Amino acid sequence: MQLNQAEGTQVVLRDGSTVLIRQVRGTDAPLLADGFARLSPRSRQLRFLGPKTTLSATELRYFTEIDHHDHEAIGALSAADGRGVGIARYVRDARDPQAAEIAVTIVDDWQERGLGTELLSRLSDLARQAGIHRFTALVSTDNAASAGLLRNLGASLVAQGPSIVEYELALEPDDYGLDRWIRCAMA
C-alpha cells in the first residue's frame, strides 16, 4: 500500500521498517479498533491498567475525535500495509493546564523498534506548542519497558502504589530537557 506523504511524515525505524506518522482523525476509529484487536492481552492490561477485551463505540469516539490542543494524539501507520501500529496521546490536566497525562501504545509485533520513542518525541513537540510544560504517566509496576523508557528520558518517580507508579517528565526546551534525552535514547 502506498501512503500519501502529504498526510504525515515518513520515518524509518531502527530496524529499517517505515511508518507514516500523523495526527489522529475522527475517521481513524476503524484503524484504532484494528490496532487494539492486534494487542496481546498483556499489552492491553499494561496500557489500560486492567483487563480490557474490547473498545466501546464511545471509547473509540473519545480516542479519535479530539481537539488537538487539550487532547492530542498521533498515530503511526505501517508503510507496508497502511495498518495502525502505534499511537501516542496526551490529555491536558484540567486542574493544571501546563501538565498533561500521556499514554503510548505499540502493537506487539512493532515493539522494540524505537517507535514509542519516536512518537513520544513528536508528541512532546506538539505539547510544547500547546503550552504544556510537563507530562505525567501512570504505569503498571510490572511494565518494565515503559518504566525504563521514562527513566531513560529523565522522568522522576512522583508516586507509587501497590500496582501503579506515576512519573513526571519535564518538557523543557533547553539541552537538559526531554529533547536531549530522546536524542540520546534514539542514538
Rank of each mutant, 00 (worst) to 15 (best):
L49D: 07
P162W: 04
Q98C: 10
S156M: 09
G75A: 09
E7K: 14
G116F: 03
I182D: 03
A79K: 01
N143S: 01
L150Q: 12
V107H: 00
G16C: 14
T9G: 02
R151M: 11
L31H: 13
N143T: 04
T141L: 05
S78Q: 02
A94T: 11
S17E: 15
L46R: 10
S78F: 00
Y167F: 15
S146R: 06
W181H: 15
L20I: 12
A159K: 11
G84R: 12
E172V: 00
D15C: 14
L178S: 05
D174W: 13
L171K: 09
A99H: 05
D28T: 00
D179S: 13
P173N: 09
T9I: 09
T141P: 03
Y62M: 06
R183W: 07
L171Y: 11
A94E: 15
S17L: 13
A80T: 05
Q111E: 11
P41C: 08
L153F: 07
G177Y: 11
L157V: 08
G26L: 12
A155G: 11
T54N: 01
L120Q: 01
D96R: 15
L3F: 03
W181D: 11
Q45A: 10
L49P: 04
L60N: 07
L39I: 08
K52L: 04
G177M: 12
V12Y: 11
E72A: 03
A99R: 14
A29W: 12
R180Q: 13
L49N: 06
L55I: 06
A99T: 14
D109V: 03
I164P: 02
G154T: 07
G50L: 07
P173A: 08
V165H: 10
E59M: 06
E168H: 09
R113D: 02
V85E: 05
T141Y: 02
Y90R: 10
I102R: 04
G75F: 03
S78P: 02
A103M: 05
W181P: 00
